[in-house]
Design a protein around this nucleic acid. Sequence first.
DNA 1: TATGAATGAGCTTTCATTCAT
DNA 2: AATGAATGAAAGCTCATTCAT
Lengths: 212, 212, 212, 212
Amino acid sequence: MTSSGDAASAVRETRGPRKVPLSNPDRRREVLDAVLELLSEVGYERLTMDMVAQRARASKATLYQRWPSKARLAVAALEQHRPLITDHDTGCLVEDLRHLLVSWLAGWTSLDRGLAIALLEGSRTDAELARLRRERLHRPLRQAAQAILARARQRGQIPDGVDADLLVEMPLSVVLMHVLIEGEQPDRALVDRVVDRGLAPLLGTPLSEHGQ
Amino acid sequence: MTSSGDAASAVRETRGPRKVPLSNPDRRREVLDAVLELLSEVGYERLTMDMVAQRARASKATLYQRWPSKARLAVAALEQHRPLITDHDTGCLVEDLRHLLVSWLAGWTSLDRGLAIALLEGSRTDAELARLRRERLHRPLRQAAQAILARARQRGQIPDGVDADLLVEMPLSVVLMHVLIEGEQPDRALVDRVVDRGLAPLLGTPLSEHGQ
Amino acid sequence: MTSSGDAASAVRETRGPRKVPLSNPDRRREVLDAVLELLSEVGYERLTMDMVAQRARASKATLYQRWPSKARLAVAALEQHRPLITDHDTGCLVEDLRHLLVSWLAGWTSLDRGLAIALLEGSRTDAELARLRRERLHRPLRQAAQAILARARQRGQIPDGVDADLLVEMPLSVVLMHVLIEGEQPDRALVDRVVDRGLAPLLGTPLSEHGQ
Amino acid sequence: MTSSGDAASAVRETRGPRKVPLSNPDRRREVLDAVLELLSEVGYERLTMDMVAQRARASKATLYQRWPSKARLAVAALEQHRPLITDHDTGCLVEDLRHLLVSWLAGWTSLDRGLAIALLEGSRTDAELARLRRERLHRPLRQAAQAILARARQRGQIPDGVDADLLVEMPLSVVLMHVLIEGEQPDRALVDRVVDRGLAPLLGTPLSEHGQ
DNA sequence: TATGAATGAGCTTTCATTCAT
DNA sequence: AATGAATGAAAGCTCATTCAT
């Protein structure tokens, strides 16, 4: 009965102002999604409040009522865009890493290359963005990685002399570089190549059997 | 020949317009170096023609006479910036890679993190910059890497099942990520960590000389 | 009916909206006092409706319900601000004038320099304010002054050839200039200086009691 | 014969940008005169850079190239508008004062009431303007006044017990009040009234003969 | 009725680019 | 050929005013 459920469907797609309050979380998300799109398309510096206003069909003044500056609006948008990393215990370091990478990639939309670059770009001049960059790009991944490595350590799957962190950093960096620098759309094949033809053989034959 | 050039040239190297024509290649390099510095400091979007004019001690109109737009000026500057990668045959894959990384890093000044981000940023809207990015960041490295890997292959130092390219991509990506994303100043220690506690133990052979 | 309204009403007299209707004259005065304060602090042009709303703890929409524009709200506030001038018959022109000036000053708080400037400023574009300015700043004073001068005339205390109005205008203008232009806080000392070392010696008679 | 004389006549009155450089002092004066006019018409707060640009037929960017902010532009305009006060020794205090007031008024154009109010208004928020206000409105006058009073003192024309400064302050304030507050156009009649029917009779009979 | 929130118009300021010398 | 200066077109942000509840 409440309008909230049907709200999205009732939303008029006609041009002109929406006049839906930003106190409405759906409306807020709509605006922030517009920001994310634009960040991804043009980056942080080229993003203008006019663009946001137009795409979100809100007035600039409305935006400024909720977010006090362009930087804070961008931060809010990125804050909301928190990719989910899942950790799955397969009993095998290599497979755990494969899962981690795949789950991480799954959260990457076409938006994200642009967002990542926008974050790099914007965080040179905006401390808030710099903080976000760290949290967004690093923390969730780092946490899942630590869990995987702890398990591997217990199982004795980390070869002597190896800095365990690098076991995550290396495949991760390769994938990220492909996405960020080459502009590739990251996919399963890339992950498998890094895992099967990079990590796994290097970690030694016993790992090729995947269970023992 | 002109009095203005003669009398004062040695004196005011530091203030006021240079008045040296851009047809002079040294003068041109001077201007492009200023652009590089600024690109590195503030990025492409925040770079202004006024900044360039001031730092290069030229007038904006002069700049526009030689380069038709800000984008083309930036491209020209990056075009000129060709870091040198050296390849040294040590007879050992791991040491060759270490050399490669160190030589690559040596070409990275603090300037280059900014440049790399500027390239990423600018190449989203400028095809010319995108091309440059590929050539500047990738090709020279890739070529040296191929040579190293070819030698290693001949020596049989590439373990079975390993995609040789990854042996370069992995350490390289790790270093690049640290620089680009963490904003770390890349140094020898980082290279050694990746090589000694990542690649080497995984590759097996050289492990004995380091880890034990 | 809701608990929120009841329980907290006595508590939060200091924060959040007052929710007292503007039909209540006390509430109305409260709002107008806030306007006066702000006019005095920042002047008419820099006064914003948001400031008023915040200080009066009312919503802007509420303000607009009672007063149709910023100008009319300012006018209403000034309309309400009617400083009291008292006239006291001391039997002596000079002392009567001193009383007049002191009583006039007493009505001047620090607020009023700002208000006077705000009136000057605003009355250039608003006829209503211009009318108010005349009534507020001039009429009450002029009336008291006329009474004093009439008595002095009867007592023969106005020297030949003197325009009686100037006897009021001169000390008054001096005080006003100090306040308006020098930004001085007007005080008793200023009045005494003008009366004792300006008017009195010039008027002759009372001079003997002061200057010698 | 000199071009400077005909310069104004050669100025094209056609609309559109002037393209005359601001390095040209005539052009600069033209712009600053526009600022003065506008300050006088609408005051400091309501003055917009667009107004100035339009009236001076220059682009806003041009204005900002020469003056770094609206406040500094206003300051520059007022700085240039330095009314001339002349002091003439008539041998008689009253006549000297009359000269002073007349010469002061002669410098007042219809601009000045607006300018004075603009200064009062703007100097509440801008320290530079506050400084100017003091210098512009006070110093030149004060200096001439001191000279007059020094001569009068030497001649023994200052009655006992009188604060000499008030002899200037009083007529001056009266005139200023009429101009500032009543909005009157100041004229010779006003000065004569204040001098002949205020100061002179108060300064005593000997002064009525004007020479002794 | 009082309010939270939205909005168009406008403000000061900046920038890539072009003109006149 | 090099320069000083001008300019149109934004950009980020604010304000008086108006809806919708």
